[in-house]
């Protein structure tokens, strides 16, 4: 009896997942029919003439005259900010994990891992708050100009820097947010390295760093890859912090590292209010399609991460 009861309750997450998929698909359906593939290739997000006398009918669905919904800006913005965040966060996290497992004295290590855990607990709006007040002005007045001057020979890093709100700010805030996830997973992976292997390397006369490079890191490689993909999943879906520092780009592909960007998650949060004013309802359906695309991407990324971690664990045992 308890077995059946708990089995019913346990199906909750299965049902929730199926329900999310079905409801998003249902809510997005008119938009899928109206926009077709343009949704993924177009760069114009335009609700159409909201003051028109009546919606127009296209293929049996209603939309305001002139409405086009192309989400490429947001898809690209999401990918760019997340990849930038990983480029910054992965080396940092691996460094922290190595520091914690190999170099840090016990006390220091405990303090550092407490700080990293705290970092994981800071609400994302508070990161956004710090981003608006500290990070964005700093990028606009110092980091951005400095990078543009030093590395301006790369076209993507050339100015203008603008206010500081944009791709770089989003990438940095996201990096700060995913470091705890990646660092703690990599640390677990490094702790799994068999003691005999490390000690053998050290006994052969290797320095600590050589032992890390030759033994620990190769052993933990799948763990590091899995952790990075997990971090990617988190960065792709992060909403509030990015919303606050990204500059909310619409209809504008990023031209350089400092350009305003829009991400899928941030756009859903930012646009629902104005979408609700669309009498034809198409704008709300388009946001649902955006949520659906984001859902599918993050699910794929997370499944990939679990598979990598699991095959890595199986090969080890």
């Amino acid at each position: 009896m308890p077995r059946v009861l708990t089995a019913l309750v346990a199906s909750f997450s299965l049902l929730a997942l199926a329900a999310i998929l079905l409801f998003l698909l249902g809510a997005a359906w008119p938009s899928i029919r109206y926009n077709g593939l343009t949704f993924l290739t177009g760069t114009t997000w335009n609700l159409g003439n909201l003051y028109a006398a009546a919606p127009v009918r296209v293929d049996g669905v209603r939309a305001m005259p002139g409405a086009t919904f192309g989400a490429l800006v947001f898809v690209l913005g999401t990918l760019l900010t997340s990849v930038l965040a990983l480029v910054i966060a992965v080396p940092t996290s691996v460094g922290i994990a190595i520091f914690l497992t190999e170099y840090a004295p016990r006390r220091v290590g405990g303090a550092v891992s407490f700080v990293v855990e705290l970092l994981a607990g800071v609400p994302s709006v508070v990161y956004g708050l710090w981003g608006i007040i500290v990070l964005v002005p700093w990028i606009g007045s110092w980091l951005g100009p400095a990078l543009a001057r030093a590395l301006g020979f790369v076209p993507f890093l050339r100015g203008p820097v603008g206010t500081g709100a944009g791709l770089l700010a989003s990438g940095l805030v996201l990096a700060l947010m995913v470091v705890p996830i990646i660092a703690s997973t990599v640390r677990e992976a490094l702790l799994m390295v068999p003691g005999e292997l490390r000690e053998g390397a050290l006994a052969l006369g290797m320095t600590r760093w050589e032992a890390i490079r030759a033994v620990s890191l190769p052993f933990a490689r799948t763990g590091i890859v899995g952790a990075s993909i997990l971090g990617l999943g988190r960065a792709l879906g992060e909403t509030m912090a990015v919303l606050m520092v990204s500059g909310d780009a619409i209809n504008l592909l990023p031209r350089n590292l400092y350009s305003p960007v829009g991400t899928m998650a941030a756009t859903i949060a930012a646009q629902l209010d104005s979408a609700l004013t669309d009498a034809s309802g198409m704008a709300v359906h388009a946001l649902a399609e955006l949520a659906l695309v984001l859902f599918l991407i993050t699910v794929a990324v997370n499944v990939l991460a679990r598979l990598v971690v699991r095959t890595g664990a199986m090969r080890r045992t």
């Binding site: 929730a16 409801f23 997990l230 999943g233 949520a291 984001l294 859902f295 993050t298 699910v299």
Partner: peptide, 25 residues
């Protein structure tokens, strides 16, 4: 197996997507 898998996947679903789902439903 399915429950474990779906729980893992559900933790990875962005919170704004859950919010939109909650809004629609």
């Amino acid at each position: 197996g399915a429950v474990r898998f779906s729980a893992d996947v559900l933790t990875g679903v962005p919170s704004i997507v859950l919010g939109y789902f909650g809004y629609v439903l």
